[in-house]
């Protein structure tokens, strides 16, 4: 993990409120889900914008690399992110 931004706390993607932008730091978990997250562009360094929550608060819509995805909270929980200064 890079040490330069140590003062910015790390959070999980599912905890980020709609309207915020974050940068991916790390992916937890294993196997298929992780591979899927990688394929849509959730790679370390990628900027993710939290767009909106579904009517029942889950799943959440995220914008990654210009495309919007619906991702469940439990799956987004595997993505460790850091808040990005706008």
């Amino acid at each position: 993990m890079p040490s330069t931004d140590d003062e910015v706390p790390l959070v999980r993607l599912d905890e980020v409120q709609p309207g915020r932008r974050v940068k991916v730091v790390h992916l937890k978990g294993r196997g298929r889900l992780r591979r899927r997250l990688l394929a849509v562009g959730m790679v370390p360094g990628a900027i993710v914008e939290v767009l909106r929550m579904a009517p029942l608060d889950d799943p959440v819509e995220y914008r990654v690399k210009g495309t919007d995805y619906s991702i469940r909270r439990c799956d987004a929980h595997l993505v460790v992110v850091r808040f990005e200064e706008d």
Partner: peptide
């Protein structure tokens, strides 16, 4: 159930 990641087209 397996993870669900779905593209939301414009």
């Amino acid at each position: 159930p397996a993870p669900f990641i779905m593209e939301m087209p414009r």
